[in-house]
Write a protein that binds this DNA or RNA. Structure first.
Lengths: 343, 343
DNA sequence: ATGAAAGCGCTAACAG
DNA sequence: CTGTTAGCGCTTTCAT
């Protein structure tokens, strides 16, 4: 039996087992090179024999690597975040880090205390996929010079390291594609307009329209907030428009999916009666019927890169902020086609 | 400014600020009652003023509450787990615990070392939603008398605390429902048969058939493993059966969803040509078209209860194992109807 | 009711 | 290269 119930094996046990001091054990385990190969091997063997596993708390208390990064998200609920999280998890595994998940729904009242406790807690760094990052969050992070990376959201201050995608270009391409298909009345469901990416996407849409000499019709723009409920409502507004659009673009897949519901409830067929196009490329979009045409954000890769950047910053907290933007890609599936000839 | 960059406020600072010893601060913060109300208030005020937030590592190193529980999952990918995780998160927030997520895809080779490190790490307890829990996992957990709760999976040893749902009954009800609709040739896609719930569900199906005097046709039972790919393949086998079933039950929603794909690719319409029924009630099922009829497991509630049980066990590790089973419920939506009269 | 002091398990100077 | 000695920030006896 490697260990007794309760008590666990410490470096003291290992040290005793192979007749060296605890510092040698520590060194053999961490700063591999500084120790004589033979000694090192002896230690490693003893550790294995005893079933030693380092106590992460003690290690990080004593100033060593913390080996944990935090992930702050609004919730575990949606495919979009899960996709990013997958990339994060994989990259973290590679570096042998663990993941602490923090959700923003908690501690509504005292959010800054929450961030404070994150910073003071286990994590060596923080990844944020929070649509709306309260300024105070960033203030605390900055004040403590705590390493963090924001995913899929720009911070206007320019003080943050962020990983995002070409929101403007993606929506420009999507809109152009629909126009190429022959659509001229294209409805648009916005994201939460306090968020940079939502603004950029709307902008891409508008520019594509104007580049193709299609006059902008404000009544074709319905406000959403990236969540299904609002997407559904916005779709209804568009569908009940006296001069209904022949295509609808949603600012993300989640809203596109619920818009599809609304469309069906209006007894319209996709894509025969109306085309629908999303943004993100979450897995659900692939299993819908018809399969959703969308603008792919390389979510998993974004997660990966965010981790790399964060790890980098954990090593060197004073690195200047970086901003990495990945390319989006239009994924043509089955939810868009040329509009039916007008009656 | 509550704190300088880097350095953070400790109990020493608080102690100095209000002229008491660190032990008093510690007591005021934790074992509230043992300290004079006036002193306590003084400490609390000073702490607030300084922006003190406890260092979780130090606290748990020194023997205090760890305030973190681990969640071991195969991945963050699917709606089923996300749903459970939501309940977990909410309940954890209530108790002011944090969540460390561990994925089993990591450390394939040395899994038991992985569990070892979990046990030795930050977590005070562990929640497992792992379809297949290697025996060694449980051995390690048991050996260290480490508190854990398994969700939606029975452990045959009877030594584990588990939260699950009425798998047998749920599938019995579902099958009976389909039979009531007039189906007699009902295909069944199994889960991974090493897993107890998969066996129970198949059993429920078989019993319902026999209770209704429908002879069991083994060729109508296709093996799946709870994952979309296998579900898809299994559905294809069923669909190419010389005497095709008029309804298909999948052992979970994920497979039901991919089976729907297969059905469409065979140019069959749901539910006119064939009915399809799932198990779990994940959110995707509600946004599919047609909406998936399924057996609802109260996933979120299962997560909630698991947390309660775990917290209970963290307080009292020697509590005898409990087994809580929640009721499933048939959710009738649009993917099932009476079979078309045979040609 | 409160203070002093001893660790929790580990890392990181500092000596040798 | 390796051992000795301080702590990291906190909880907890043990005194007072």
């Amino acid at each position: 039996m490697p260990s007794q119930p309760g008590k666990s094996v410490t470096i003291y046990d290992v040290a005793r087992e192979c007749g060296v001091s605890i510092s040698t054990v520590s060194r053999a385990l961490n700063s591999a090179e500084i120790v004589k190969p033979a000694t090192r091997q002896k230690v490693l063997d003893a550790a294995a024999r005893l079933g030693y596993v380092a106590n992460a708390q003690a290690r990080s208390l004593a100033g060593g690597r913390a080996n944990v990064v935090g992930l702050l998200v609004p919730g575990l609920i949606n495919g979009y975040i899960a996709e990013i999280a997958r990339g994060i998890d994989e990259e973290l595994a590679r570096a042998d880090y663990n993941l602490m998940v923090y959700t923003t729904r908690r501690h509504r009242s005292q959010e800054s205390a929450y961030v404070d406790s994150i910073v003071n807690g286990f994590s060596a760094g923080l990844l944020l996929i929070v649509p709306l990052v309260p300024v105070q969050y960033l203030a605390i992070l900055a004040e403590k010079n705590f390493p963090y990376v924001m995913i899929d959201q720009a911070d206007n201050s320019g003080m943050s390291t962020v990983v995002d995608a070409t929101n403007w270009q993606g929506m420009y391409d999507a809109t152009s594609y629909l126009i190429g298909l022959g659509h001229t009345r294209i409805g648009f469901i916005t994201g939460l307009m306090d968020i940079r990416s939502a603004v950029d996407r709307l902008d891409g849409y508008k520019t594509a329209l104007s580049d193709h000499q299609i006059p902008l019709d404000d009544s074709l723009i319905a406000r959403g907030d990236f969540w299904p409920e609002e997407g559904y409502k916005a779709a209804n507004v568009l569908l009940e428009h006296p001069d209904r659009p022949t295509a609808i673009i949603a600012s993300n897949d989640l809203m596109a999916l619920s818009a599809m519901d609304a469309i069906r409830e209006h007894n319209l067929t996709i894509p025969d009666d109306i085309s629908i196009l999303g943004f993100d490329d979450i897995p659900q979009g692939r299993i819908m019927f018809p399969r959703l045409t969308t603008v792919r954000q390389p979510l998993e890769q974004m997660g990966r890169i965010a981790v790399k950047l964060l790890l980098e910053r954990i090593e060197a907290p004073d690195l200047p902020p970086k901003h990495i933007t990945l390319a989006t890609e239009l994924i043509q599936r089955d939810s868009c086609q040329s509009p039916a000839p007008r009656r």
